[in-house]
Simulated assay, not measured.
Amino acid sequence: MGFSDWLFMIRQDLLGLLPTYGLIIVVTLALAFFITQYLINRIYSKRTESAPLPTRLALFSLAGAVSFGIMLMAMQPILNVTLIAGARSLAGLLAQCLAGVIAGCVFAYLGNKFKAKT
């Protein structure tokens, strides 16, 4: 496969998946991060300090991974097909969950940075 074919297929995947799978990812992560932030606020509401960054990183990373796992597993019984070809194997499923971990880390880091500025 040539480099131009590779780029063409990546472009087609992005154009085809972004409107649907991208929206599902956004909704899933938003829900997971909202619930996680709510739990953090409840846990730290009685304390004078806010949650430290390592705690936020761990919790939001876990929330991201779990939300991706639940989302991918929920697609199978609902639609009776694994829509995301990359998630058909265990390695692919774990790679998708790793994307959730990365999203959680970015969210926690940016959220902590935003709090520091205000």
Rank of each mutant, 00 (worst) to 15 (best):
L98A: 09
F3Y: 02
L53K: 02
T48M: 12
F107H: 03
G22H: 14
I35A: 15
T20Q: 13
G2Y: 06
L57Y: 07
F8D: 09
G111I: 06
Y44E: 13
A116N: 08
I40E: 15
T82A: 13
I102H: 03
F8M: 07
L39A: 15
K46C: 10
T36E: 09
Y109H: 01
L15D: 06
R11S: 09
L72S: 02
P19Q: 13
V27W: 01
Q12K: 11
L59G: 11
G2T: 01
A85R: 10
T36L: 07
L94V: 04
I78G: 04
K115V: 00
G86V: 03
S45F: 14
T118Q: 07
E49D: 05
G69Q: 07
F8W: 09
L23P: 05
G22V: 13
G2N: 00
D13T: 06
L29K: 05
R47K: 12
G16H: 12
M1D: 05
Q12E: 12
T28R: 08
F3P: 01
F33W: 13
Q96E: 04
A30G: 12
L94M: 08
K115Q: 10
I40K: 12
A95L: 04
V26G: 07
L23K: 11
F107P: 04
T82Q: 14
M75N: 09
Y38W: 15
A74P: 10
A87K: 09
K46D: 14
I24A: 15
Q37N: 15
G69I: 00
S67W: 00
A116W: 07
T118A: 00
Y44M: 10
L90S: 12
M75E: 10
N41F: 12
K46M: 11
I84W: 12
L15M: 09
M71S: 01
M9K: 11
G22D: 11
Q12T: 08
F114R: 04
F114C: 00
A116G: 02
F114V: 04
P52C: 03
W6D: 02
M9H: 10
L59D: 10
A51M: 06
M73T: 05
K115I: 01
Q96R: 07
I25H: 13
Y38L: 15
D5K: 11
T118K: 05
S45G: 11
S67T: 03
L39V: 15
L14P: 01
P54H: 02
I43Y: 15
A63K: 03
S4G: 03
G86A: 09
S89P: 07
T48A: 13
S4D: 02
F60V: 05
A63T: 01
A32E: 08
I10N: 02
T28W: 03
G16W: 12
R11M: 02
T20M: 14
L39K: 15
M75T: 08
F8Y: 07
I40G: 13
G69E: 04
R42P: 13
M71T: 04
P54Q: 01
L17M: 13
Y21C: 11
C105I: 03
V26W: 10
I102R: 00
L15R: 10
M73P: 02
Y38R: 15
R42A: 15
Q96I: 05
A91V: 08
N112L: 08
A108Q: 00
A74F: 09
I35Q: 14
A87P: 10
R47Q: 13
F34Q: 13
L14W: 12
P52T: 08
L18Y: 09
T20V: 14
S4E: 01
T118C: 04
G69P: 05
P52R: 06
L59P: 14
M73K: 00
